Amino acid sequence: MAGKRTVLTVGLRRLAAMLLEMREDAQLGKEEVSSRTGINITTLYRIETAQARPQRRTLMAMLDLYDVDDKQREEAVELLSTALKPGMARAYEGSVSEVYAAYINFESEALSARHYQTSTVPGLLQTYEYANAVIDTSMPKLEAAMMESRAKARMDRAVNLTKEEPLELWVVMDEAAIRRVVGGPVTMRGQLERLLQEIKRKNVILQILPFDAGAHPGMAGAFTLLDFPNPADPELVYLEGLAGDELIEGHTEIRRFGVIFDQLRAMALSPRDSAAMIAAAAAELAEIGD
């Protein structure tokens, strides 16, 4: 059941990493922890990989066994309290994938996002009409209520760009995303005008990767790199694909996508020239009408 899923949050991921480190520092194997606390080995694995939230009594049993100091204990308990709070994705957990729900939570707590998109405008910058058109086309059998919820999730995510400490967003977008007329000329023109408004924000940078740039390292598909204000929270990569979405961790993979993004932004038009291209595309659609 979607309502019973444990959807990943920043706090839950940090707690899982902390508990794994505590067990390793105590030089205890999973089997010994299980035999001495009564915690099922599978449950222990799920807790340490952030697939499950520990109950308070389970957490206390682990902390007692690991013989941690008061500071570590307080931090772990506080993290559990944070992990129990519903993330931004809570309202949409029944209508989006578990990975996408986790991404929504992570995005809401991230310091910055570096995003490469291929054929559509990134969800964070979409208008409601454009989002509906994309969802309707890519998921034609989706129920109306589910479609509405998915579109609303994209609209609500935009608050990340306007909150007190806004997300720093850097987008490299293939030219196809502004040339492909999604939802008709009026909807597409509205979307392009939205982009022109968004890039006026100090925390938003947008570059267009033109067709004449030729082959490039982002041809495999869209991705987003998230980093966080707390050094204890490692960077993440979010991949979108027809076969499903994926969240990736690990220094080697993060570095690879970071290098790819740097190459893409170097090949893309400057923000000023990108804005001029978007404005020209919007003007062309204005002449077409609906």
Rank of each mutant, 00 (worst) to 15 (best):
T37L: 05
G38H: 02
G38N: 04
G38P: 04
G38F: 00
I39Q: 09
I39R: 03
N40I: 00
N40C: 02
I41T: 13
T42S: 03
T42M: 02
T42K: 04
T43L: 10
T43D: 10
T43W: 04
L44S: 07
L44C: 08
Y45F: 10
Y45R: 14
Y45N: 15
R46G: 04
I47P: 12
I47L: 11
I47A: 12
E48D: 14
T49G: 14
T49F: 02
T49S: 15
T49R: 04
T49P: 12
A50V: 07
A50Y: 13
A50H: 09
Q51K: 11
A52K: 07
A52D: 11
A52S: 12
A52P: 02
A52Q: 13
R53F: 00
R53Y: 00
R53T: 04
P54D: 05
P54K: 02
P54N: 06
Q55L: 03
Q55W: 00
Q55D: 01
R56V: 01
R57A: 03
R57E: 11
L59P: 04
M60G: 00
M60Q: 14
M60T: 13
M60Y: 09
M60P: 00
M60A: 13
A61F: 02
A61E: 08
A61K: 14
M62T: 03
M62E: 08
D64L: 08
D64V: 07
L65G: 08
L65Y: 09
L65H: 10
Y66C: 11
Y66I: 06
Y66G: 10
Y66M: 13
Y66V: 07
Y66E: 15
D67G: 10
V68Q: 09
V68T: 07
V68F: 06
D70G: 14
D70F: 10
D70M: 13
D70Y: 11
K71E: 15
K71P: 00
K71W: 05
Q72R: 15
R73Y: 08
R73W: 07
R73V: 13
R73D: 15
E74Q: 15
E74F: 06
E74L: 14
E74D: 15
E75Y: 04
E75S: 09
A76R: 00
A76D: 11
A76Y: 01
A76W: 00
A76F: 01
V77I: 11
V77S: 11
E78W: 10
E78K: 14
L79A: 06
L79N: 10
L79W: 03
L80R: 12
L80P: 14
L80E: 13
L80M: 12
L80K: 10
S81F: 07
S81I: 07
T82V: 08
T82A: 13
T82W: 11
A83C: 02
L84W: 00
L84D: 15
L84Q: 14
L84H: 02
P86W: 01
P86A: 08
P86R: 05
G87T: 06
G87V: 06
G87P: 10
G87E: 12
